[in-house]
Write a protein that binds this DNA or RNA. Structure first.
Lengths: 129, 129
DNA sequence: TTGCATTTACGAACATCTTCGTATAAACTT
DNA sequence: AAGTTTATACGAAGATGTTCGTAAATGCAA
């Protein structure tokens, strides 16, 4: 009954989550170094963001050591699922199929990937028959 | 050389665009009535939003009559493509295929839709062979 | 132990988004 | 023509997101 629902991460927060998902639990210093590789960002900026994420419940942290270790609270897949859901609603009026069509049309996928998708479709159709 | 690139619409702006795409060029009054059907929203709020969208270039407008007629500047498909692109980058690290897998897994699509998608995949694969 | 480097904490500035109150102008009513 | 309705324009408040400066705490080194 007292479940706090975790809010959707913002764009800047998502960038941090990607680092945590890819490298596992990490201190602020490491995350900031990763981000700095791609763009200009101050250390305290990253720190503040991660503290806010902790407040929101997007990450957990271990404060035993002096430099705290942060970890994503939700898995990548779980987060992607949630974000995808609201994205489909907002942009594609709830039609997942038309999103898929657009996605396949826009970007090139490898033959392997396409075959994988085809297989998935057949598996889904198979269940319904 | 002096092309102003049109910015990404925000969520509230997207709601308005959906109305314009669905019903064609419309005055503020009509758009606001549509939105009001779903949720509470003041007339001047919608007006202001549409004025801002006009400043940004997201919509064009005809001011001949007293009540201005607004029209989406970009097609639904064009806008969806742009938003999808940055969404794939931000949330799925650029992998359209994994987005498609998630989308198909999450939401139920009709057999017709699935067949359409399968056909599209085969068309894409065909081109490459 | 004194000073230096590293870390967290706090607060504030700045931007953007969303909402709406109020003023002004234009058209319709009677 | 005066009053009512309906529209646009403007400005500003409140919410959220992003950035960073500065202070305080902690550990390390000389």
């Amino acid at each position: 009954m007292s479940e706090k629902s975790i809010p959707k991460p913002t764009d800047a927060e998502l960038e941090i989550l990607q680092v945590l998902w890819e490298h596992g639990p990490s201190p602020v210093r490491f995350v900031n170094d990763e981000l700095s590789g791609r763009r200009e960002v101050g250390y305290t900026t990253t720190l503040k963001l991660m503290q806010i994420m902790h407040d929101k419940g997007l990450v957990t942290r271990n404060t035993d050591a002096r430099s705290h270790i942060y970890e994503a609270a939700l898995s990548r897949e779980e987060t992607q699922r949630t974000l995808l859901d609201t994205f489909v609603d907002n942009v594609f009026s709830g039609s997942a199929a038309s999103l898929v069509m657009q996605a396949l049309g826009n970007r090139k996928a490898s033959k392997d990937e396409l075959d994988q998708i085809k297989a998935l479709i057949e598996r889904i159709e198979g269940k319904k028959d």
